[in-house]
């Protein structure tokens, strides 16, 4: 199933909802979207809502690595609701230490943090 990306900004929090499969073919789209969302004035947190994401290839992880290093310390990355297979990929390669991995997120709490 193709990747669907839907993004919204809530004050200082940008939420990128992903559903379907994140493979090499669509990684660039996500990368561009991430940069665009993080570029909104006042955005301090980017949440990747992965609850509907069923597969992530290495290209997907690359986008997260890119986002972490490109956006720097000023923007916090949160990965929310990753399904077990996706979460395991992130953990096996050690990227979970660079982001917050949460099951669910609370926009108000993130916005006030």
């Amino acid at each position: 199933m193709a990747l669907e990306i839907s993004s919204t900004v809530h004050g200082s929090v940008a939420v990128i909802e992903l559903s379907g499969e994140l493979d090499a073919g669509v990684a660039q789209r996500l990368r561009d979207e991430t940069v665009a969302m993080a570029g909104h004035d006042g955005v301090r947190t980017v949440v990747f809502d992965m609850s509907e994401l069923t597969f992530m290839a290495s290209a997907g992880l690359r986008v997260l690595v890119f986002a972490k290093q490109k956006l720097g310390q000023g923007v916090e990355l949160v990965i929310a609701g990753a399904q077990p297979a996706v979460a395991e990929t992130i953990e096996l390669t050690g990227f979970h230490h660079s982001v917050d991995m949460v099951e669910t997120y609370d926009l108000d709490a993130l916005g006030n943090a």
Partner: peptide, 20 residues
């Protein structure tokens, strides 16, 4: 030797081991 070898991510997995 990588659990992520089927995803082609053995480089990251091995580096993570070294770092840890």
């Amino acid at each position: 030797y990588a659990a992520t070898g089927r995803l082609g991510m053995q480089v990251d997995e091995f580096k993570k081991l070294v770092k840890e």
